[in-house]
Design a protein around this nucleic acid. Structure first.
Lengths: 103, 103
DNA sequence: ACAATAAGTTACCTAAATGTGATATAGGTA
DNA sequence: TACCTATATCACATTTAGGTAACTTATTGT
């Protein structure tokens, strides 16, 4: 008892992984091509990148737009739901910047 | 090329796990005894609770205060660094609340 | 003697996350 | 014909996270 329902659980389920916040963060500026987005995220593997955007798409945080050309062209873009994370993502980033300034 | 250094990485290393944000969130009100804190976090196991607070302590986000009594009494409390996460934690929580309101 | 207590540890196990390397695609170009 | 391109998938291995149950500790109250 005295247990508290905490919506934070829901949030962590959606974006509580190593890569998701990074990918979302780099989409804040607008739509980005797949390869370029992947390049913006240091050290992410091919597989994890794909897996991450797939899940973000499933959870309606980003959209995936495929152009039927060869070689393929794919763009990812934040949905409204994704955009609503903007201030949180920026806060997390600037908190990290402040904190890593020490040590 | 075009890779961007992102302090978000640092942030995610410190608090990017299933339980850490939850534990920190429940410390926002002030110091809490170990058992009581654990009870506030639904479904956390004994082991994960201990492991989580150990890591938070190591990263200087919380302090652990042991009273030399029997049976043991231990209190956890946010450090200044931990307190600086307050607005982020609350934002994550209220974002979760808004979003889980749909679906 | 022995049970109760609060906080934690230990050994052992399963599940989830992440990484690596090879392969697929299909049209344009050398 | 063979290769290049951007995007993605597959099989497999490894690493990390998380769970369960038993055990420890030292004192007080029975």
């Amino acid at each position: 008892m005295n247990k508290i329902y905490c919506p934070l659980n829901y949030t962590m389920k959606l974006i509580g992984t190593k890569w998701k916040p990074l990918v979302l963060f780099h989409l804040l500026e607008g739509p980005v091509r797949s390869g370029k987005l992947q390049n913006k995220v240091p050290h992410i593997s091919n597989k994890m990148f794909t897996q991450t955007v797939r899940e973000l798409e499933k959870d309606n945080l980003i959209t995936r737009k495929v152009y039927p050309v060869v070689p393929p062209k794919v763009e990812y873009e934040l949905t409204e739901k994704g955009k609503s994370l903007e201030s949180i993502l920026k806060s997390l980033d600037s908190w990290g910047k402040e904190m890593s300034a020490f040590s």
